[in-house]
């Protein structure tokens, strides 16, 4: 039973991933990803990670994907040009993907982690419960918990700064297809002050 579910979910995940990569229209890609995410939720359930599965569905498939849908709707699903502007890229990419997969698989299967060949230890029924996860989050990983909340705040502020505008909230007017001169000016000014997003330069310290 478990095997059947596994293969079904695996197929769904793979199909969704392939769909994202292959489908030309980004809207269809978003939908493919939603399928992928649901399949992954099933896989999580198979691994007795109930809370994670729920979070996956509610947060990921629910909130994040809705965000994607909104943006794709705003931007429009223009199909992208087919030509290859970087010579060799279309040829090298599948090769590299395959190389990556092969290497990772060899690393996993050839490793001396004997436990990989098992089903895992017997766990008590409360494994993966919200209560258990909640205990961990609020006791042992409190710092990570708080830090991620700050991260969320930063992201929200960053998004507002990036895509928002000064002055009167006329967000509705500048909808898809003709933005007024105002709206394109304001973000340009905003661009002078990059938000407190982590800069890639950082590097060695």
């Amino acid at each position: 039973m478990e095997a059947v579910l596994f293969f079904a979910a695996a197929l769904g995940a793979l199909g969704g991933a392939v769909g994202v990569v292959v489908l030309r229209n980004p809207f269809y890609g978003v939908l493919a990803l939603i399928v992928h995410l649901f399949s992954l939720a099933v896989l999580f359930l198979l691994l007795t990670a109930a809370f994670v599965a729920a979070a996956q569905v509610v947060v990921y498939a629910g909130a994040v994907m809705v965000l994607y849908v909104f943006v794709v709707a705003y931007i429009g699903g223009d199909t992208e040009p087919l030509g290859d502007s970087i010579p060799g890229q279309k040829f090298l990419a599948p090769l590299l993907g395959a190389a990556l997969f092969v290497e990772l698989s060899i690393a996993v299967l050839g490793s001396s982690l004997l436990a990989l060949g098992t089903h895992g230890p017997n766990v008590n029924p409360g494994f993966g419960n919200p209560a258990a996860i909640g205990h961990l989050l609020l006791e042992r990983f409190l710092l990570a918990f708080e830090a991620s909340s700050i991260l969320l705040l930063l992201a929200a502020v960053g998004a507002v700064v990036l895509a928002g505008r000064q002055g009167t909230p006329e967000a509705g007017q500048g909808a898809a297809g003709g933005s007024s001169k105002h709206s394109s000016e304001a973000p340009a000014e905003r661009f002078e002050d990059p938000p407190a997003a982590p800069s890639p330069a950082g590097g060695g310290a």
């Binding site: 090298l92 590299l96 290497e103 990772l104």
Partner: peptide, 21 residues
């Protein structure tokens, strides 16, 4: 080209993994 940067990134990663393997 961001994609060529990504390509170089993954080439490097793959090379490194190969070395360790």
């Amino acid at each position: 080209f961001v994609r060529s940067y990504a390509l170089l990134l993954i080439v490097g990663f793959a090379g490194l993994a190969l070395y360790f393997l």
